[in-house]
């Protein structure tokens, strides 16, 4: 990989004497979809917060496009499990919110909003207010909002953790579509191994605390993927074996 989008070099984080993140190095290629999985309580949150510099790393570096990451300069978006939309804005205003802040002109904004709303299937609901939508539709609004700004890097922290399987499958498919269309680089953190195998191009397997990288697995399964495909099950079991603690 000559020009990785994100390059993490020897990232280490200590809280006092407590080592939580131990010499983590990896690269995310441009337009790559990387999933991060690890055992429960493996310090995924610390991992994420160190990546976003919410915690200052004790040592190590994070480069985006070959330069030290700068939250002000780099357009990095996040999607968490607890979603927030502005209750006083309609769906399309919410989706366009990030663009409006960035001062994108009206026409470009409308085009971007139209595109993502189309993909997540919220076209008919663009004039609705958040309190008129179901939880899963709100989730779509938030995801559409993140993609609309065309972020350089999108960090997702278990956004589908509490959803029914059927809905999760649907939203995962939409996510893949959005990712393919917008060519965004995505880092997706999850506890769900099947989800990681379904979504990713590459799987980063973490160890228990202090968090290290246990293995990086390339996932070349053809898309659209099928969860009952023997190759899929093989990979799912392989990852499960790596982290199984229960």
């Amino acid at each position: 990989m000559d020009n990785p989008k994100v390059k993490v070099i020897n990232l280490t984080k200590k809280f006092g004497d407590l080592l939580v993140l131990d010499d983590v190095s990896f690269e995310v290629a441009e337009k790559e979809f990387m999933c991060v999985v690890g055992p429960t309580g493996c310090g995924k949150t610390t991992f994420l917060n160190s990546l976003t510099k919410l915690y200052l790393p004790t040592s190590g570096e994070i480069l985006v496009n070959g330069e030290p990451v700068d939250m002000k300069k780099n357009n990095i978006s996040y999607i968490f499990q607890e979603q927030s939309t502005m209750p006083w804005l309609t769906v399309e205003e919410n989706v366009g919110f990030g663009l409006a802040i960035k001062g994108v002109d009206a026409k470009a904004k409308r085009e971007a909003v139209d595109e993502v709303l189309e993909i997540v299937g919220l076209n008919d609901y663009r004039k609705y207010y958040p309190n008129e939508l179901s939880a899963s539709m709100l989730q779509r609004v938030v995801i559409a909002r993140a993609f609309a700004t065309k972020p350089e890097l999108l960090l997702m922290d278990e956004p589908y953790g509490q959803l029914d399987i059927e809905l999760r499958f649907k939203l995962e498919d939409e996510l893949i579509k959005l990712w393919q269309r917008t060519q965004t680089t995505v880092l997706f953190i999850t506890h769900n191994i099947e989800e990681a195998v379904y979504l990713s191009e590459k799987i980063l397997v973490l160890t228990n605390k202090p968090t290290k990288i246990k293995k990086i697995i390339d996932n070349h399964l053809p898309r659209p993927r099928n969860v009952v495909d023997p190759e899929f099950i093989k990979l799912r079991n392989e990852v499960t074996e790596l982290i199984k603690w229960w």
Partner: peptide, 21 residues
């Protein structure tokens, strides 16, 4: 969980279940 019959039944029930918006 990854037994083919298990997964097949999961798919069958998933398809049978009413859709939510």
């Amino acid at each position: 969980y990854t037994d083919p019959d298990f997964l097949a039944l999961r798919e069958e029930i998933t398809n049978e279940m009413d859709k939510t918006l």
